[in-house]
Design a protein around this nucleic acid. Structure first.
Lengths: 210, 210
DNA sequence: TGTACATCAGTGAACGCGCGTTCACTGATGTAC
DNA sequence: TGTACATCAGTGAACGCGCGTTCACTGATGTAC
């Protein structure tokens, strides 16, 4: 399992080709942001890059393969978020640390929303690859949260009815999804700041117990 | 704005036609469950019903219109959930009432997951109709939760940093999204029951403060 | 109850567009000496 | 440094399938008398 970038026929590709592949990925992401998945066409991607459709097929089997590659990149981009969860938050620093975590998560989401959204639907509709890549991303964060909750339960600060793993998943679910609601919520009087503050409070209360 | 069912050219349709329309909607939902949105074809829908494609176009402008109709029906199906939120939960009855609410929500989600999932992506990708129908559905539940939280904040049971509306949205987000994770979670040791119990605990703590 | 007519509902068949995909080819870059 | 050759990267042009969509028509149901 080398992680060199390869073309569809399996050959390791040079720097020029890698640049082309990158431009195709960037164009794919751009179109996903601007028009959504349902109108995504291979032809449009290559037109955006100023190349021919045949070129696309040197690097990807189909449009889904390009989206999957973007979703894999998003896993890498999520990794730094985990730093906010170690060492475990304490009652005295939870306010600032939870806030830093939420800020980072919001920035991450803003940057990758289009791809993550599609990754999630495809995962839920049963695509194995998208499932794997989503699990991988979520587990990074869930693990960190889980550890803190397990500790809180052990020391009696948190109720025993909270299952650490499930709670971790629930909190990740909450953050992710709420950010998807953002646009509509701001129309109804939730500012971005109040979304931030509310998430911080909910995380603090649930994970540290105050 | 009569709410009689109409054909594409605007005429009110009779009972025979209504039955056909219904079968088309049912087939659409079935295919969404079985194959997902990305493989949904008008031809397949009509084949499923044993009718011709031309018939489909008497009732819907395109496949999206049928999905939207299903999403509108899902709003109606969500309405009974609100009953669980009135009157407000109290510290003494919160355990059973939160549980009943979560159970009802899980059942609702199980029944409509395929359609709701697509409604959400289309809403987030900017489709005005799907946005409207999602807001409508979410607000039903958010309103009920919001009222309880506002009350908790007013009586000092809950911290003032919780914005009632945003918190309501956050909780709805959490429930909805977590249920989308279910399949993967059960593979990692979260049983359906522990999902249920965790949600109940989180709701109780956040909405009633115990 | 039966008949004639009006309206409603459903469809076969055809059209054409647009997209995915491939292949044989050209042009660009790298390398050996 | 220059030349010849090998490999890498990119593409024009074509094919064909499959799907969305329409229209003129048939068949079914309803209604008036």
């Amino acid at each position: 399992m080398s992680n060199k970038v390869r073309s569809v026929d399996g050959r390791v590709i040079g720097s020029r080709a890698q640049a082309t592949r990158r431009r195709l990925l960037d164009a794919t992401e751009k179109l996903l942001k601007e028009q959504g998945v349902f109108d995504l066409r291979v032809v449009d991607i290559t037109r955006e890059v100023g190349t021919s459709a045949a070129t696309f097929y040197q690097y990807f089997n189909d449009a889904d393969a390009a989206i999957l590659a973007l979703a894999e990149e998003a896993v890498e981009a999520e990794r730094p978020l985990v730093d906010h969860l170690h060492p475990a938050w304490t009652p005295s620093d939870v306010a600032t640390r939870a806030q830093a975590f939420v800020d980072a998560y919001m920035a991450y989401w803003d940057a990758h929303a289009a791809v993550l959204r599609i990754r999630n639907v495809k995962a839920e509709e049963g695509d194995r690859n998208f499932r794997a890549v989503r699990s991988q991303a979520n587990l990074l964060v869930i693990d960190g949260i889980q550890a803190m909750i397990a500790d809180g339960v052990a020391t009696g600060r948190l109720p025993r009815t909270l299952d650490p793993f499930t709670t971790g998943a629930a909190l990740v679910a909450m953050i992710e999804r709420l950010l998807g609601f953002q646009n509509e919520m701001t129309k109804r009087g939730s500012s971005r700041d109040s979304i931030r503050d509310t998430l911080v409070t909910l995380l603090s209360r649930t994970m540290v117990g105050n």
